[in-house]
Amino acid sequence: MSWRHGLAAALVLPIAALADAPAPGDRRSGYETMSPALRAMQDDDVANPGMLWVLDGEALWSTRAGAADRACADCHGDAAESMRGVAARHPTFDPRSAAPIALDQRIERCRVEQQGAAPSAPESHDRLALTAFVAHQSRGLALGPFDDPRLRPFVDAGRASFHQRQGQLDLSCADCHDRHPGRRLAGNVIPEGHPTGYPIYRLEWQTVGSLDRRLRGCLAGMRATVPAPGAPELTELAAYLAWRARGMTIETPAVRP
């Protein structure tokens, strides 16, 4: 029976609600706990492997594609102008689906609907490359503010799942990322879990990957059910993480261990 878990929940929830995210101004990117060598790798565009994806994305930006035989640039012109700040406001509220939409999903919609291109898989090279290129146009800008009231219920849902203990290990995201950042989980320093660098080049993956891939990794580690890439649960979590990190600097393409 679960009476004792009911009791535990009664004890835990009010405390967990108090111990919310690190306060604005107090938040640290995963960048800050990386080794000097990895920080140098991220900082140097020639050494940062993620820049290869950015460069591929730049090429795709001006390549005609799809049934419409149109390039992104044909509609949006110079990305340095038209795409600056776009990553800072994603996930954004999408009136058409009445739900948040992540940057890569927004790009995919343009590809399919405006270019008439075949749908791409979430972790496909082209999806990651275009997303990295577009997000890179916001590097150095502050994330947020995510104050659209229509986004609010989704941020709240993401916050609830961030604090929900789940999986066989019965851990919440907050257990690690709010309560124990800076500690070591096996060999790895636990970061605060900010989505400031995505898509990232992760050494463990030896490639670039999306925020959804990162979140799915943490969920698998908790032995929880893992939603499909792009699933609404992941976008809600992403919306909460972005709100939680509001004001932080966008790093794309970040390097992570």
Binding site: G167, D170, V226
Partner: peptide, 27 residues
Amino acid sequence: NPRSVMPAYLAVDGRTNVAAAYRGRPI
């Protein structure tokens, strides 16, 4: 300590969203 992050190795009840391979099984 109900807030402990140390998992309860023998418990199976009160779990949410457990991956299918581990469902109903203690750690």
